[in-house]
Amino acid sequence: MKQQSLFATAVCQVSRRRLLLGGLAFGSMGLLAPRGLTNTPKASDVTDFLILSEFLTGRKTLSVTLARRYYLGLQDQFPDLAVRIANLSREIHASGVQTMDDYLSHGPSPEARNTATTIVSAWYLGVIGQNPKKQMIAYSDALMFQAVAGALVVPSYGAGPLAWGNRPEPYMMLKGVSDEQ
């Protein structure tokens, strides 16, 4: 299947880039240029989007399949997506930061921040865009649920018969979540 081989290529490239560039890996981002309206992005576009998404969300193992679907969906709703991504990437690259938190404290431009929020919203909510053009991509894979995983289930996916009662402890341990007595 054509789709499958595309995924395989993308996966391959991701690991290669991770290997070459370590944590920060958008060497090719600046090369992204606006292209004609097309529904079949190049594998490298998806890969770049995936790497950018991993930086923006602070996650290391985002799904290539979902990256492709978010990319397509966002492209559909934002015709200038490629330009916006290129601008955002260039700005991150120029800032020299290593993490999203550093980038945020560095002070992104309003446009870059806007693009970042659009992409992060998609991954976190599993939904692209605003009403009435909202498009559903992921439910149980939406990243917002990872923040509370271990404590709360994704609604409709139960943890088993009467499987509750202990003090909830999310897997994701974050500094500063207030739990003071």
Partner: peptide
């Protein structure tokens, strides 16, 4: 295969 990723929505 992560079908949930492919097919949801």
């Amino acid at each position: 295969e992560p079908t949930e990723d492919i097919a949801r929505g």
